[in-house]
């Protein structure tokens, strides 16, 4: 019964893993990875929403009468692009931080900032 909704369980687990990495890791690259996992969980959530039981891929065909809902897929295509842009910008900032501070560890950056 509970396993019937296994896709949503995956969503919840991924979401928590992502948030946990963001909060607990001091390495900025790991934070970006955590952010990615967090966003991916939402993508899976949307795609799960669009699945119609026994529905086929939304491609018009005479032999099929039930289709999955294509709209969430399209929305997530957009959200993936947004996610890629955010990741790229985040990583670019990490490179600049590395150049300016010489480290990508949150604690070290805080220490350097406190000295100023």
């Amino acid at each position: 019964m509970i396993l019937d909704l296994y896709n949503y369980w995956i969503v919840v687990v991924l979401m928590m893993v992502g948030l946990f990495i963001i909060v607990s890791r001091g390495n900025l690259v790991k934070k970006v990875i955590g952010l990615n996992i967090f966003q991916t969980s939402v993508f899976v959530f949307y795609i799960s929403l669009g699945k119609v039981e026994d529905g086929s891929a939304p491609i018009l065909s005479d032999s099929v009468s039930v289709y999955s809902n294509p709209l969430p897929h399209v929305l997530i295509l957009t959200a993936i692009v947004v996610g890629v842009a955010t990741t790229a910008l985040g990583l670019a900032l990490v490179i600049r931080i590395k150049e300016a501070y010489g480290t990508v560890e949150e604690d070290d950056i805080q220490t350097l900032d406190d000295q100023q």
Binding site: L35, L93, I97
Partner: peptide
Amino acid sequence: ALWAAFQYLVVGTI
């Protein structure tokens, strides 16, 4: 500014 922007990026994306 870089560090502030990164922090904002993380929080803003969440």
